[in-house]
């Protein structure tokens, strides 16, 4: 039997028509990509939770007002909102994101960790933290393109548009970002298998 996957477009349409369950499906489908993108921009779990919530409240209001016109591009549209909200947050607080240590980050998730195998979780956390630190070592412009493309699923064309550069520049930044990461991984013999 074939699995029928309802498109984002259809879910958005049905949600606007009043089917609340469709929003839950959209969130379930995209929450990790959106949240990972935000957390990599702001480097703080609590701020990321706030921005995630603010982003979806804006999404809900826009959809309800009938102003949504990004058919077929639902995820990049939300990522764009989340990115702008993250930038606004730092403008308001007048500080730029810093690299956050792993300490004190997971209090919010204590009960979830206790349900998993602690050792596996520790190893997985270490790998994740190492990759996060590598991303934070990148120059800001390279990091931005990498996060928006790899985690936010935005096309290079869209990234070029929102960052105000040519598509060649966006591609160039991504290339340098990935090359830099590869070099660091090789030089430091970082094992992430």
């Amino acid at each position: 039997m074939k699995n029928h996957v309802i498109s984002d477009r259809e879910l958005v349409k049905q949600y606007i028509q009043g089917n609340e369950a469709c929003l839950e499906m959209l969130i379930t489908r995209h929450k990790n990509k959106i949240f990972t993108t935000i957390i990599l921009i702001v480097n703080d779990t609590y701020i990321a939770e706030d921005i995630f919530q603010e982003t979806f409240i804006k999404v809900i209001r826009t959809l309800r007002s009938g102003k949504y016109n990004e058919e077929g591009k639902f995820l990049p549209w939300i990522v764009r909102i989340a990115r702008n909200m993250s930038i606004d947050h730092f403008r308001r607080s007048k500080r730029m994101p810093t690299v956050k240590s792993s300490d004190g980050e997971d209090i919010f998730r204590t009960f979830e960790i206790s349900e998993e195998n602690r050792e596996d979780r520790y190893i997985s956390d270490q790998k994740e933290q190492t990759v996060r630190e590598l991303i934070n070592l990148l120059p800001a412009e390279q990091k931005e393109v990498l996060v928006l493309r790899h985690y936010g699923n935005m096309s290079f064309k869209d990234i070029a548009e929102i960052t105000g550069v040519s598509i060649n520049t966006a591609l160039g930044r991504m290339r340098y970002a990935l090359n830099n990461m590869r070099k660091i991984i090789s030089e430091k013999s970082i094992s992430l298998q």
Partner: peptide, 18 residues
């Protein structure tokens, strides 16, 4: 390597949005 990072928002946060 990049795919090893996958963060999820807290379930309570999703309930607030819904």
């Amino acid at each position: 390597r990049l795919d090893t990072i996958q963060e999820s928002p807290h379930p309570t946060n999703i309930q607030i949005v819904l």
